[in-house]
Amino acid sequence: MTSAPAASRRIRLPDWAAWLGVAPFFVFAAMFLIAPTAWLLVGAFQDGDGAFTLANFVRLGQPSIRLSYALSLEISAASAALGALFGLALALAALRGGLPEWVRPTLMTFSGVASNFAGVPLAFAFMATLGRLGLVTVLLRTLGVDLYAHGFNVLTFWGLTITYLYFQIPLMVLVVTPAIDGLRREWKEAAETLGASAFQYWRMIALPVLWPSALGAALLLFANAFGAIATAYALTGSSFNIAPILLYAQIRGDVLHDPNLGYAVAVGMLAITGLTNLAYLALRSRTERLR
């Protein structure tokens, strides 16, 4: 083959070929991501006859819905805050704590698995651990500590929070690790030569550098917990009235007796996860600019 004619024949296909290649993706996105969400959005602003109204959102304030939102926010906040705190501590220990080399890859691999081990099986695992007949409950009872006599129950707020931490902490480890890796050795050394103690280095440099990333990660954890339903549902059935479970019941049987109010419940959830994610993105772009 001679090169000259080959070069002149090298015609780029017109752009429509590329558009054809991406078209199925956009059709998919429109049909299965955007349209269903838009449908709910529109419905949330309509009354039973299809007229525009804000009443559905006003009615989100009725006690049963308000309480379920509050419970969802509380449990998401608790599991995000604790998950972020413990996840950060664990990641710092493994990455900067002077532990043996094998600790880091072990933690990373385990976090990859545990952050994906959620839903119904996770509920089972914690039933078997902290349920009335669970190993830890039984062991503690033989040691004279009766968890359940002290009002603990895995089906309660704190039980669910402890369960959520099983995927929240590993998620935090995975999300915050790049930020910890971004702490440069020279910062610590420069601080040392300038007379700073290890504590002063952490307080004045490392933590201030880390906190936007850590806060961003905590927001991600919050959104993650807020949309979660399977673990809570499998653990508590429909008795634990968080917002996703309320919505689940509404979809199943129109327990609110008003489809449009159901849309508003869904849109309310969407607004919370959406805002959380926006705040996360804003924080992330801020930290990236500072680099």
Partner: peptide, 21 residues
């Protein structure tokens, strides 16, 4: 003696300024 007791000034190749200050 520990580094933070030596009263030494050091300049690093990659600047190493504290980014939060």
């Amino acid at each position: 003696l520990r580094a933070n007791r030596r009263a030494i000034g050091m300049v690093f190749q990659a600047y190493a300024l504290f980014p939060n200050m």
